[in-house]
Amino acid sequence: MSDERVANLQRAMRLILDAVEDLPAECRDLAGNALLNITAEAVVQDVGCVEAGRIFARLGDLLARGLQPPAREAITLSVFDA
């Protein structure tokens, strides 16, 4: 991932996080699920179903190990590959 793409991703993440924090309290709990749905669709459109499945499987493995991606920092899931 290029430095410019990482910087843009981090900026987008900060803007989204700020927007979620500004949601009415009754909607905030639903934001994660809504973002996950949007994200899944965007990743599939970007890389296709097979690669998206691999990405989400790595994310699932990461979470199963008790690790969580930071909300304000872009990461590459491959850094968690064992």
Rank of each mutant, 00 (worst) to 15 (best):
L36V: 02
A12E: 12
R28F: 01
L23R: 14
D18H: 12
I16N: 02
G32A: 14
R54M: 06
D29V: 08
A40P: 00
A42D: 07
Q45L: 10
R14G: 04
A42Y: 05
R54V: 01
D18A: 15
A31S: 05
N37C: 05
R11M: 08
N8Y: 09
T39G: 02
A31I: 04
I38Y: 02
L23H: 08
A25D: 13
A52W: 01
I16M: 03
V43I: 12
V20C: 06
P24A: 15
D29S: 12
N37L: 07
D46N: 13
N8T: 13
L35V: 09
R28M: 01
V44C: 07
N37G: 11
A42R: 03
N8L: 14
L35A: 07
I38F: 08
D29P: 05
Q10R: 10
E26I: 15
E26R: 14
A40W: 00
I38W: 00
G53F: 06
E21F: 13
N33M: 14
L17Y: 08
P24C: 09
T39P: 00
A12M: 11
D22V: 11
D22A: 13
L35F: 05
D18Y: 09
R54A: 10
C27D: 04
V44E: 02
R11H: 10
L17F: 12
G53D: 00
M13G: 03
L15G: 09
G32I: 11
G53N: 05
V20P: 01
R14P: 00
L17V: 13
V47R: 15
R14V: 10
E26D: 11
D18E: 11
A25Y: 02
R54H: 09
V20G: 00
L35D: 14
L23Q: 12
A25V: 08
V20Y: 00
Q10A: 14
C49I: 14
A42G: 08
E41K: 14
